[in-house]
Design a protein around this nucleic acid. Structure first.
Lengths: 277, 277
DNA sequence: TACAAAATGTAATACAAAGTACAAATTGCC
DNA sequence: GGCAATTTGTACTTTGTATTACATTTTGTA
């Protein structure tokens, strides 16, 4: 009796065909409201035909679509009555070790933010918000994608953002343009890359303000960095997890966006016009 | 716009007749679920006739009963479907609102994994572990860095991994080499990119098995995908958060690594020798 | 490659629900 | 208490939806 429909889906999804799985996916992704709409709307959203939706519903053990909808509504009713209920359900899933990597990642995130002072974040955010100066971004073998991600966003909300691509020799050429009060964001986790360390040292020598985003063991670049943000990366896997660093990048992006709200809103408008026009 | 239906009722209830008031009270008492049922059920519950319900609904300013139901659903959707809302409720009860973006991200991760069956993940992992076939990766404007990240790891543990770089025209040229049983991993979140959709369609036409990693609203590419993995992306920021998708990528990487343990261990040894030597 | 089996969609059908006209009932007023 | 105005419900029509039969496509296998 207590089995919720989303559990029911997880149980039976193995026995489902591709299209039926799409129906299941769509329902889960828009849970549960899409199931309360008509078969036609549900099927359109899932990109399958209506009979597929009906087969999906009957596979879940319902006699017909109305019966299925009634079950969904009852579930909803129970949820709405106690909004805290939901929180408890989520908490209780904490014990389930179905996804150890996920649990570890969440723990890492919590731990990282717990040890991080808002001051540190604010300082780094401020550095990235100085629109007079240039911001350069760079990452290592596995962290460069995060640098790219961050650059893609920063480029939209402010000018003077450059991601340093290619080989070390290419970066070095860029050094000539980097000077006092410019900002360099470096991502570096173990094994720390010599090329990054050398570059950071040279940049610092030119007076560049370095924001380092690294793991809990701290890259040697910390010596040269003005701002050091360290995130936990250890997970039960042969690889380290960079999810924490990724979220840190997003946090910085959000911070800069907020700080430059007025100017960036205008900038984004202009940009969309350029794109559409 | 912002006026909720319950507010609407209190505004107009004075102008209502006795029976219409019964309808109003019934709706308030069972808010909002009774309004999502049929007119007949609503009228029975209120102890009035169906035309009275319809008159009540039209007095609230709706053109018809379906329009009224749609409004109710939108209200509900805002309440329950937004993880933000829940995150705010949960965190406010805990008192630690220092990092709302972090709280929301964690909530998104939990919610996503909770709705995800291990089978789905396993299937996708299996697809990425078939070393006989080629794996192509591709992402959108903001998600391509995740595709790059994933490719960087996969390249180490197995052969035949290609990240599709550059413009659409470049990808298209790669299509010629893609065929039945090859795998294409696509990251696509809103606003969904036409170029990606077009490419996915062409790839599917060639018999390529598509693994789609998308947001909760599902990219249209879901139509063409064999595996659909949907993660929540909404956070209290002007930007969507891709942290969940990033962790999903790491989870898949870990899964493939585990599955190819023996062969990949050897491969990594060889690779290190090449690097050192 | 050809065949059988399974899956999926198209299109017609059956059904249920919303909407409407009008008659009955109720209420308010003189 | 009788008349007009309003409210309410009944019975019917219209509309839209779930359902189903069947053709088509896809998939797996020899």
């Amino acid at each position: 009796m207590g089995t919720s429909i989303s559990e029911l889906i997880s149980e039976k999804i193995d026995a489902m065909s591709t299209s039926e799985r799409k129906a299941a996916q769509t329902l889960i992704a828009n849970y549960p409201l899409i199931g309360l709409r008509t078969v036609a709307e549900f099927s359109a959203q899932a990109g399958v035909s209506s009979p597929t939706i009906l087969r999906f519903v009957s596979r879940l053990g319902f006699q017909g679509y109305p019966e299925f909808q009634q079950a969904l509504q009852q579930e909803l009713a129970a949820q709405i009555q106690s909004p805290l209920n939901r929180a408890t359900i989520i908490q209780s899933s904490k014990g389930s070790a179905a996804y150890p990597l996920m649990e570890a990642a969440i723990e890492n995130i919590r731990e990282t933010f717990h040890h991080l002072s808002t001051q540190q974040l604010d300082d780094a955010t401020e550095a990235l918000s100085r629109t007079r100066t240039h911001v350069y971004l760079l990452g290592g073998r596995f962290t460069d994608p995060i640098a790219i991600y961050m650059a893609a966003h920063l480029k939209i909300i402010r000018s003077g953002v450059t991601h340093l691509t290619g080989q070390e020799s290419n970066w070095r050429d860029q050094l000539i343009d980097m000077g006092r009060k410019d900002v360099l964001v470096i991502f570096d986790i173990r094994r720390y890359q010599d090329s990054l360390i050398r570059f950071a040292e040279k940049a610092q020598a030119r007076g560049v303000e370095i924001v380092l985003i690294t793991d809990q063991w701290l890259s040697p670049i910390a010596r040269f960095a003005r701002h050091v943000i360290a995130g936990r990366t250890a997970v039960p896997s042969p690889w380290d997890s960079s999810t924490t660093l990724f979220l840190m990048a997003e946090t910085l992006i959000a911070g800069v966006t907020h700080k430059l709200q007025n100017s960036s809103a205008e900038r984004i408008r202009d940009m969309e016009q350029l794109r559409d026009g």
